[in-house]
Amino acid sequence: MSVPSKPICIALVDDYDVVLIGLAHMFDRYRDRIVVAEIDANQALNDEIDIVMYDSFAQPESDEKEIAALLKNPRASKVVVYTWNFQPELIESARKQGVHGYLSKALPARELVVALERIHDGDIVFTEAPRRAKSAMGLDWPGRREGITDRESEILALITQGKSNEEVAKLTYLSPNTLKSHIRSIYRKIGATSRTQAVLWGVEHGFTPDKHRIDHWMGGP
């Protein structure tokens, strides 16, 4: 792997600012190697980007469409999916679309940086499914400070978006019983006794998608 003559310029794409800001901060110690140019929430890319990282949090329905749009964007040299969902059909779909990487959220920051450098050098990097469900240290998500896990957060975000249990189970590849167990845990943590209360809590605590972008993150171009 060659050492880049200048830092690799990346853009982060997701519908939730808190998720993206947590990811951006993971690169703070590696700014000589990785520069976050912009954080994107449903907007087109403005800067010339070496790698786009598409975070799949709470938007599995739109993955194929959004990834396809990013791959066609002339400003995005390479596109990487950043996820904890390693269902075989999702991985195969990403391969067929031509993404340049499929990276696990369980990767420590140093390994994530190395993977991005390999991709920048021309490698196609698909990491193995994580042995554990936990995300890498430093990431953030809605409800984390209330004790909600990353997986529970995605479920509550989908519920807040108006998805039924059947739809959530399909989108998250969970069995109905496993999903119900997660929902009971969520309700307990937020003090909800009904779906309506859970949705209202979600709306008030950042579980609805954001609709703006953050340009030039931390001195990026």
Rank of each mutant, 00 (worst) to 15 (best):
G101H: 07
G122F: 14
K163V: 10
D32I: 09
E167Q: 10
V99G: 02
A136T: 02
K211N: 15
L20C: 03
I155D: 03
I148M: 01
G101M: 08
E167W: 03
R195T: 10
P209W: 04
L12E: 02
V13Q: 06
M53P: 05
R195D: 10
V19I: 14
A133V: 06
Y173W: 07
S153Y: 08
F126C: 04
W141P: 01
I186E: 01
Y173F: 09
V52H: 07
T149H: 00
L139S: 08
I51C: 03
I159V: 10
G191E: 04
I183N: 05
L70C: 02
H205Q: 05
S153H: 12
M26Q: 06
G122P: 05
R118H: 13
A136V: 09
P74M: 06
S5W: 10
R145D: 07
A76K: 00
W201F: 11
Y16V: 04
H120W: 15
F57V: 05
P209L: 06
W217D: 04
A157H: 08
M218H: 15
E167G: 08
V99W: 05
K96R: 11
V79S: 08
L112V: 04
P108M: 08
E117C: 10
S194F: 01
M53D: 02
K211G: 12
E48Q: 13
R132P: 05
A106F: 10
K6I: 11
C9G: 12
K105R: 15
R95V: 11
A169F: 08
G220Y: 01
A129V: 10
V125G: 01
K105H: 11
D47K: 14
I39K: 00
N46P: 03
S135A: 15
D28E: 15
M218W: 12
K189W: 09
F207E: 02
H216W: 12
N73Y: 00
Q87N: 12
S194P: 00
R213P: 00
H212G: 12
H212Q: 12
S153I: 06
A198C: 04
Q87A: 09
D14S: 14
R132N: 08
H100M: 13
L23K: 06
T208N: 06
A68G: 00
A109C: 11
R132C: 11
Y82A: 04
R29S: 15
I155K: 05
L45V: 09
M1Y: 09
P7Q: 05
R213S: 15
L200S: 13
